[in-house]
């Protein structure tokens, strides 16, 4: 057996996607992507695997709600109907609140699809996630809590693969411990572009996201905006969020001068 054959064997065993975008992953026929070329190109097959476990961590403890909002927005781009299970710890719900239906719509999620679960302990949280993933009735599982240990993430990855259900975990303390997640993201809030009106109210949500680890992908960092109307991500200017949108009004058009006399 040649080295090439062995390599191919390893690829097959790990079900590691080849690095040529466009080819379909076996069994993953749904297209779950950012809709932003720059990010999609960094992912294997230009999409997020919809039968894997993904980890989204907050860059800083104060970025928790940004990380969670980003995960929600990402889930809204997952095609298909069905319930989404949302799980958090009771103390987290007490301290940082729980999902609020009237505001979820702006992240592109129908609040009626969400099944809320409150777990009392970290152990219960991992148990709920695994049970939920293994149950074939759900479209996706989203959970937030303190970092899971490697064994838990490995179990979840295997469960996601077997049941073909995606699972997103919002890692609240942002610790970069060992994880078996297919992709690991780090999310930080960005100052938004504002709405450009007189009061200069907050405009769309803005995140600075980094792809920290991805099997078969390219790590990178991007600044994203969320469009509340079309429920889609947009790239922001990497310099400072919003400036590409807020073009000065008095720039005017370039007028060709006629040659004098």
């Amino acid at each position: 057996m040649t080295i090439a054959e062995l390599r191919k064997l390893i690829v097959d065993i790990e079900n590691k996607p080849a690095k040529t975008p466009g080819t379909t992953v076996p069994g993953d026929e749904c297209l779950w992507s950012f809709g932003v070329d720059e990010i999609d190109q960094a992912l294997p097959h230009a999409r997020l695997c919809s039968r894997s476990f993904h980890d989204v961590s907050a860059a800083h403890p104060t970025d928790r709600s940004s990380a969670c909002g980003f995960a929600m927005a990402l889930l809204s781009r997952l095609p298909g109907e069905g319930d989404i299970l949302w799980c958090q710890l009771v103390p987290d719900a007490q301290e940082y609140g729980s999902l609020y239906g009237p505001g979820l719509h702006w992240l592109g999620i129908d609040p009626g699809r969400i099944i809320h679960v409150c777990a009392r302990s970290h152990k219960d949280l991992a148990w709920v996630m695994e049970e939920a993933v293994r149950s074939a009735g759900l479209r996706a599982v989203l959970s937030e809590g303190p970092a899971l240990n490697f064994t838990a993430t490995r179990r979840l990855s295997l469960a996601c693969e077997e049941a073909a259900t995606p699972c997103l975990f919002v890692n609240l303390n942002g610790e970069a411990g060992a994880s078996a997640a297919a992709t690991r993201w780090q999310v930080k809030a960005d100052v938004g572009p504002g709405d450009g009106e007189g009061m200069s109210g907050p405009g769309t949500a803005a995140w600075s996201i980094s792809l920290v680890r991805c099997r078969g992908g390219q790590p990178g960092k991007w600044h994203l905006h969320w469009d509340y109307e079309t429920f889609s991500f947009h790239m922001a200017s990497p310099v400072r969020g919003g400036e590409i949108f807020a073009r000065p009004a008095d720039t005017g058009d370039v007028v060709a001068f006629g040659r004098a006399g």
């Binding site: 069905g82 319930d83 009771v90 999902l99 239906g101 009237p102 609040p111 009626g112 969400i114 099944i115 809320h116 679960v117 409150c118 777990a119 009392r120 219960d124 148990w127 709920v128 049970e131 939920a132 149950s135 074939a136 009735g137 759900l138």
Partner: peptide
């Protein structure tokens, strides 16, 4: 079949975590 699977899951979660900890919201 799908909702059957969900209700099986809900039963298991509710029995371990308590029925009030597994819910949906309505407006």
């Amino acid at each position: 079949l799908k909702s059957e699977e969900t209700s099986v899951l809900i039963d298991r979660l509710a029995n371990r975590l308590g029925a009030k900890n597994v819910y949906r919201t309505i407006p």
